[in-house]
Amino acid sequence: MHETQSKAPGELFFSLILLLVSCVLFWQAYQIDEFSSLKSPGAFPMAAAAVMFVTSSITFYNTAVKHFRVDGLAKKRISIMPLPVVIILATLLAFAVVVESVGFLITAYVFLFITIKFLYQSGFLKTAALSLAVLAVIYVVFRLVFQVVLPEGIVPEREIIAWFESLFK
């Protein structure tokens, strides 16, 4: 576990953000009910935020000290945001943005296709087939067996299911 002994880029920045977040949250907790009483709904959140503030200050101080000590270790730097992480995060965000309007089936299929193509680097047809297989399994398990109604979006799923059922009636 010596990895973290060296300074990862952005560590100081991250600990600073946590410190700032703690301050904001403490302020928010204070706003709930101020220091009114022991039973107030704000008492516990304030205590938690106070612990966050103290511990993040300690961490920030430690990191800052380390920051100056190990500045020569630039070679050991690990990339915090390699390209795959950036791309995957972007597609995940896009997924969450459009899933409700476009619908789960289409979004998930496109997502699977892009990510499998990118990470597995298989051929076009193979990727298409793989994504379809994965999606089919997920759909059957969640939507049909466990009746989790995934966002339908532009696909009139219920009509299609009803039509499908009517074929067997």
């Binding site: 532009i154 696909v155 009139p156 009509e159 009517s166």
Partner: peptide
């Protein structure tokens, strides 16, 4: 999106026998 949606809906209704 709405256009696709309505087209699909019409298709599925047209396709359904009853």
């Amino acid at each position: 999106i709405n256009k696709i949606k309505s087209t699909l809906a019409i298709l599925s209704i047209a396709a359904s026998p009853v």
